[in-house]
Computed example of a mutant assay.
Amino acid sequence: MSGDASVAPGQALADRPEGFRRVAAALQQRGHPHPARWLEQSARTCAEAADALGVQVGQIAKSVIFRLKAAHKDEERAVLVVTSGDKRVDTAKVTALVGPVGRADADFVKSRTGFSIGGVSPLAHATPPVVLIDRELFRFDTVWAAAGHPNGVFAATPEQLVAMTGAPAADVTEAG
C-alpha cells in the first residue's frame, strides 16, 4: 500500500493530530497487534478508505453516530454503530436495541466522542458511547476502522473490535 505509513510502537506521533495519537495510544495499551496507520490521502468515505487500502468497501468498519434521546439535551448520549461500509444502518433496529435515537450533528459528534465526522474511532472516546458492532462485519477476516482522524485507520478482526469495545455484535443494518 503506497502512500501510507504505519505508526509503530515508539515512533514519534507529535506531528499527528490529537485524535489519531489518542487512538494509537489506546491500541498500544490494549496490546493490539496492528498499529494505527496514517494515510497520505483522506479517507472520509468508505470508498476512499477502501481504495487507499486496496480492500472491499464492506471491509471498512464505518462509524455511524446517533443521539440517544433523553429528557434533557445535556443528558443525551452518543450511540456508535460500527457497521460494514457496504451496508446502511436501520435506525428502527438500533432503537429496538438501545432506545429512541435521532440524528447527531457534527457538534454533538465532536463534543461527545472527541472526534470529527470522518474519523470517529470505535475506541478512545472523550465520553464512552453506547456501542453496537454490526454482525455483517463478521463476513470478513480483517476490517479497517477509523483511527481518530480522516487519514487514520487500523486493522482488526471483528472479534477484536467486539473485545476492544465491549460491545455486542448485533443485527443493525437494513435488509438487502
Rank of each mutant, 00 (worst) to 15 (best):
A26T: 13
I117S: 07
A146I: 01
G58W: 11
A106S: 13
G85I: 06
P129I: 00
V98I: 04
P128Y: 08
P17C: 07
D90W: 03
V131F: 08
P128R: 13
T142K: 12
L27R: 09
V55T: 04
A70E: 09
A169D: 04
G19L: 05
L39E: 02
H32Y: 03
S6M: 14
I133V: 11
T95H: 09
R139P: 03
T173D: 01
A146D: 00
D141I: 07
K87E: 14
V131W: 08
P9D: 11
E75N: 15
D86Q: 06
T95Q: 14
A147T: 02
L97Q: 09
V153L: 14
P33Y: 09
G85N: 05
R30G: 13
T95C: 11
V94T: 02
L53Q: 02
P168S: 09
A14H: 10
A71R: 13
G176Y: 06
K69A: 15
G31D: 13
M164R: 03
V23W: 03
E40Q: 14
A5Y: 12
Q160G: 05
D134G: 09
A24W: 05
P150D: 05
T91K: 15
T95G: 07
V109D: 00
A70M: 07
D15N: 13
A36L: 04
R22E: 13
S121F: 00
K73R: 15
S6I: 10
F154L: 05
Q160L: 07
T142H: 11
H34C: 12
I117Q: 07
T157K: 00
W38Y: 07
F108H: 04
L53F: 03
E18I: 12
P158D: 02
A12E: 13
A5R: 15
S63N: 00
Q56P: 04
A12P: 14
A24Q: 03
V82A: 00
L123R: 09
G54F: 06
A78T: 02
